[in-house]
Design a protein around this nucleic acid. Structure first.
Length: 495
RNA sequence: GGUCACUUGGCCGAGCGGCUAGGCACAGGUCUGCAAAACCUGCUACUCCGGUUCGAAUCCGGAAGCGACCUCCA
């Protein structure tokens, strides 16, 4: 089935019809985590957003190479003049090897992403493993005359680049002249010819332990070189989609475009996609503000803010977090609140409970509801710049249909039942990547046991032995099994 | 200070000029031994002020509020 997919391109600030650079193939690069701390809710957003993009493109039949990097070097500490690597600083504090710290947090990141149902990318390159490629990139930019060496560091010459290309600021909508007049005074700027210039290579201070030899100094690569170098290496000089959080548009992605354009004469990709932020009390959740809640804290339900107040009313399962994020469009902000999370949890439970009804849904000769348009409506939602909230609304409509059939308020033919189930399988599980948390390896056994127990309870009810029937229900309830009496007997749900 | 977004019912959240999503919460009802679930019904909103239009939450102008970026950040 051919689907016309529209993607909002930050570069043009409008939705564009997606046409891959190479027919049938898609190259996608997404900025991954800096592994020097636990992932928080903000990290879940791009991971889940682009996971859905990845899944949907594959569903449409594209062969997708998805690259998401691990940043384990290069980003400077807050006091940028120290020239001290974030990883190195944390490592010294904890008396660990820098790479040990990076590995530790990489493992924890992977565990959290697995729990959230985020598929592993095709390639997950580490910045530290691509120092040579980054040095080569710096050399090329120097050869083009668009960078200069200064005291062992190398800086990108933004002014000169701008004279030649007029491209700087195109992605972020910035005007260079204005920036030059409004940029704040920063320490350690004396090496730069201009405040807008950015580092391609940084000379390491003596105490800096993460360092590599280069033609200019023992040091480390600049903030933006890894994505340019690794993107080119694995996806070529011009690939399809580059993604990341909106806060990376400037300076990170603007600089990436500058670096790539300096070398190739054009930017790295055709479509730039940016997810919006998650806010907490209306403010961006972020490291610098110290108002973030880690994913593990969500899963366990315990997080104290700086005043010692418990922020989480209860634990939230990974699927609740995922559903919460997917219920908003990726370009809008999402405000964290317990109320919204609980609503997401209940909403998703509604969908899974409806899904569980498929196995004992009775087919009829005729369908009283026309469900023929739903599959395409679901595609239409996804095709409109990955409008997952609309898709979910359609699934809720179908859940209602299922419940109506189950209550004999509506009828569906077997073919229509199969179609609805197929839509759920395709869109809820395959594309949105939701996982049915009630299913487990023991589900067949549990199912058998539960049928037996419910049988006994039905007998008790027939005998009007309410004491026994209530005892069974209460005991199961204590174990987290909800008994639901219906017209055609009882069913159960694992909580 | 500069640039760019956003402001929808009790809460979350779609919407891209007319038919006024969806979820959660709430209220009434059906079913039930009771409860829960499900189903039915109700609740009808677009920050403000102008303008364009037969018609605007939706387009244009202005105001207010809030946020992001300009500095590591998803």
């Amino acid at each position: 089935m051919k689907q016309d997919l529209l993607i909002y391109n930050t570069l043009s600030r409008q939705k564009e019809l997606f046409k891959p650079v190479h027919e049938g193939h898609v190259g996608m690069y997404v900025c991954g985590p800096t592994v020097y701390g636990d992932g928080h809710l903000g990290h879940a957003r791009p991971a889940i957003t682009f996971d859905v993009v990845f899944r949907y493109l594959q569903h449409l039949g594209y062969k997708v190479r998805y690259v998401r990097n691990i940043t384990d070097v290069g980003h400077l500490e807050h006091d940028a003049d120290d020239g001290e690597d974030k990883i190195a600083k944390k490592a010294r504090l904890e008396q660990l090897e820098p790479m040990e710290v990076a590995q530790y947090y990489t493992n924890r990141y992977h565990a959290a992403m697995d729990a959230l149902g985020v598929l592993r990318p095709s390639i997950e390159p580490h910045a530290s493993g691509h120092i040579i490629e980054q040095i080569e990139l710096v050399k090329e930019i120097l050869d083009k005359g668009l960078a200069y060496e200064s005291n062992g560091s190398v800086y990108f010459d933004v002014n000169k680049y701008q004279e030649q290309t007029k491209q700087y600021g195109r992605l972020s909508g910035r005007v260079l002249e204005e920036m030059l007049s409004t940029t704040r005074e920063l320490d350690g700027q004396e090496e730069k010819h201009n405040t807008a210039d950015f580092a391609l290579w940084k000379k390491a201070a003596p105490e800096h332990i993460m360092r590599w030899p280069s033609p200019w100094s023992n040091g480390f690569p600049g903030w933006h070189t890894e994505c340019t170098a690794m993107g080119s290496k694995y996806l070529g000089d011009y690939f399809d989609i580059h993604g990341g959080g909106m806060d990376l548009i400037f300076p990170h992605h603007e600089s990436e475009i500058a670096q790539k354009t300096a070398v190739c004469g054009h930017g790295p990709c055709k479509y730039w996609m940016h997810n919006n932020m998650i806010t907490i009390n209306g403010q961006k959740m972020g490291k610098s503000l110290g108002n973030f809640i880690t994913l593990d804290e969500f899963f366990t339900g315990s997080h104290k803010d700086k005043d010692g107040n418990e922020m989480l009313a209860q634990p939230y399962s990974p699927m609740t977090i995922r559903f919460f994020i997917l219920q908003a469009h990726y370009r809008g902000t999402v405000d964290f609140s317990n109320e919204a999370l609980i609503a997401a949890e209940k909403g998703f439970a509604r969908l899974t409970q409806a899904y569980h009804l498929f196995k004992n849904l009775q087919a009829s000769k005729e369908s009283s509801i026309d469900i023929s348009g739903y599959r395409q409506k679901c595609y239409d939602a996804m095709n409109d710049d990955f409008n997952t909230p609309i898709l979910i609304a359609h699934l809720f409509d179908l859940a209602k249909v299922i419940n109506q059939v189950n209550d004999h308020h509506a009828t569906l033919t077997q073919a229509d039942i199969d179609e609805v189930k197929s839509i759920f399988d395709t869109f809820l599980f395959e594309i949105l990547g939701m996982r049915d948390e009630a299913t487990s390896d023991n589900s067949a056994l549990i199912d058998g046991l539960m049928q037996m127990i419910l049988d006994i309870r039905a007998t008790a009810k027939t005998n009007k032995d309410w004491a026994t029937s209530d005892k069974i229900r209460d005991s199961l309830g204590a174990l987290g099994v909800v008994v639901k009496d219906g017209k055609d007997g009882a069913t159960y749900e694992l909580k």
